[in-house]
Amino acid sequence: MNHTCADLSAHWPYPRWIAHRGAGKTAPENTLSAFRLGASHGFRMFECDVKLSADGEPFLLHDDDLCRTTDGQGDAGGQPWAQLSRLDAGGWHGPAYAGEPLLRLEALATWLLANRLLVNLEIKPSPGREAETGAVVADHVTRLWSDEAIKPLLSSFKPEALAAAQACQPGLPRALLLTAWHPGWQHTAEALGCVAVVVHHPCLDAASIATAHAMGLRVLTYTVNEADRADALWHAGLDGLITDAVDQPWAQERESVAC
């Protein structure tokens, strides 16, 4: 069954538990080692960040600057992939991960598809490249997941990125990321044809979740690392939870993916 944006609110195909950046803080974020570790703990879905190199290659990185999670320096989006691909994106986390490279979206797709795993791709554009990044990521996703019934969920804090994804690949599911319930969020989500909102967890309660559900939106949250808070949100009607706590017993309940 193909899940379109129109029917995803009724037939939600994604697991409730989502591993943040692959494996939270237990491995170097957004690397293949992190995804492998998250999967070893039973996670069937992952969240990660995608941006573009200077020459338009989609790859995984959260920050605009390279210095926190690689041995490089400067603006990641201002460097070509040939240069970025030589960086060490694992050694900062510990010697066991030294030499771990930055991960191309295409390489991640190959691994996810081989293992029948799902992903929430946060479109994380470098400043001024919102529309370009949204369009390129959407086009790559359509090509890479062409034979899959369940497509990646595209999310972003940047409406311009989601609008570009919507314009070029309208059939892909989209979610609006929110740090707070800012005025006009409903109109933005509706205009972008979103199937979900992904909201910072302190802003969520049963009433706000019910409001989004009444609009036909699923509600996901980030980043919940305490068992009590997770339990409260499940009881409030939450649909999906992004966590760093991939190795904690309370985060071990998993559902099978309805492929």
Results as ranks from 00 to 15, higher is better:
85 S>F: 03
194 C>M: 05
211 T>E: 15
23 A>L: 04
140 H>T: 14
95 P>Y: 13
84 L>D: 10
217 L>A: 00
202 P>G: 01
235 H>I: 07
21 R>Q: 12
129 R>G: 00
128 G>T: 07
218 R>C: 03
255 E>T: 15
196 A>R: 03
170 P>A: 10
68 R>V: 13
226 E>D: 15
112 L>I: 05
56 G>H: 07
234 W>E: 10
88 D>F: 07
230 A>C: 02
68 R>L: 13
12 W>I: 09
76 A>P: 05
145 W>V: 07
132 E>P: 05
74 G>C: 09
43 F>S: 08
96 A>N: 09
107 A>C: 06
152 P>Y: 07
88 D>M: 00
230 A>Y: 13
161 A>R: 09
76 A>Q: 08
182 H>G: 00
113 L>N: 01
18 I>L: 13
55 D>V: 10
137 V>P: 03
60 L>Q: 01
173 P>T: 01
229 R>K: 07
130 E>Y: 12
214 A>Q: 13
120 N>F: 01
254 R>M: 15
157 F>H: 08
14 Y>K: 04
10 A>M: 10
223 T>E: 13
168 C>G: 11
45 M>P: 04
66 L>I: 00
204 L>W: 00
113 L>A: 05
23 A>C: 12
143 R>Y: 06
166 Q>V: 02
207 A>M: 08
124 K>R: 08
170 P>R: 12
117 L>Q: 09
41 H>G: 01
92 W>N: 13
10 A>V: 13
142 T>Q: 14
128 G>C: 01
13 P>L: 04
256 S>H: 15
5 C>D: 00
79 Q>C: 11
200 H>Y: 14
12 W>Y: 10
225 N>C: 01
51 K>Y: 11
40 S>I: 05
121 L>C: 12
147 D>M: 12
202 P>C: 11
114 A>V: 14
20 H>R: 10
229 R>N: 04
258 A>W: 04
42 G>S: 11
27 A>I: 04
239 D>G: 08
195 V>K: 12
123 I>P: 07
103 L>M: 11
233 L>R: 10
114 A>L: 14
248 Q>V: 11
99 G>C: 05
196 A>L: 02
123 I>C: 07
60 L>F: 10
224 V>R: 02
253 E>K: 15
79 Q>M: 14
77 G>L: 08
205 D>N: 15
245 A>P: 02
37 L>P: 10
217 L>H: 07
71 D>Y: 05
58 P>G: 06
249 P>I: 11
51 K>C: 15
167 A>N: 09
195 V>Q: 12
249 P>L: 09
137 V>K: 00
